[in-house]
Amino acid sequence: MEAAIDTQKISMKSLPAFEALASGHRACQGCGEVLAMRLAMKALGERIIVVSATGCMEVITTPYPQTSWLVPWMHVAFENASAVGSGVAGALLALARKGRLAGGDTKIVIMGGDGGTSDIGMQSLSGALERGHDFVYLCFDNEAYMNTGIQRSSATPRCAWTTTCPLGEEQPGKQEAKKDLVGIVEKHHIPYLATATPAYPFDLMNKVRRGAQVKGPAFIHVLAPCPTGWRIPTHEVIKVARLAVQTRDYPLYEVVNGKYILGKPGKNVKPVAEYLKAQGRFKHLSENDLAAIQQEVDERFAQLQWLASRP
């Protein structure tokens, strides 16, 4: 049977012409999430079934009777995409075994935002990872509930402004740290895990493709800047996403069968303040806040380096 996922490494020369999304959708101008989704779909190709959680990507692509999707796509609710995907996986196995599946091999792609993944969808994700179904999960993390109007999620970083962690005298912005979703997923000991951003499109596409080639669950965490919620100009989305990596606030790495592989270190690491000051949601930060965040970034990166140094 023909494999669902192309194995060729994606470069400028071998960039797939395939698009899973028709031109035209209802995302905000400069949306980092829809760009990341488009790139991921290029890497995956047409032999896929997409199961989507509720969120921006669901709303902007499927206002009935229109749909942007050129691949099979299903949405049920906010918190259960991983469970719906588990059922798709079960049916594909049973039907293939019984000779009732026409066509070639099919890869299941489950996707959700940060809310649909690290908050309300955490249970169904954890269950699906533990059961080990064959799917690739794409988490497009824009660090708040953007679809409902920029409310705090567990993925919102410390100090960030949102409409439910406003800049009060007593409590300026989010008081708590961002949930370590990637760490939680890693503890399920799945075969493939990676971080990516649309600022590094080939890195993103190749990670999605590598993840989709493994048998069993793969998880791609994508930092996807939201110009509306992050309070950044629409033309600076890629610049800000790149700064997240360059400042080590959002390091790019893979965990392949438990082995951490850190992305190539940048030549000159920038202070995290450059990343934060580019965003309106952090404009209230004091020098003390910046120093504290810098320390957190350094500690997280040192831990990552230690993990990557293990044999």
Binding site: M74, A83, V84, G87, G90, R97, S124
Partner: peptide
């Protein structure tokens, strides 16, 4: 000859059978 998915909640049970049914099972 069936796939038995021992899900982690009833919410996921009904969600999984939806996915299976939509796939033709």
């Amino acid at each position: 000859d069936a796939e038995y998915i021992a899900v982690e909640s009833e919410h996921s049970a009904i969600s999984a059978v939806m996915g299976a049914s939509a796939t033709g099972g």
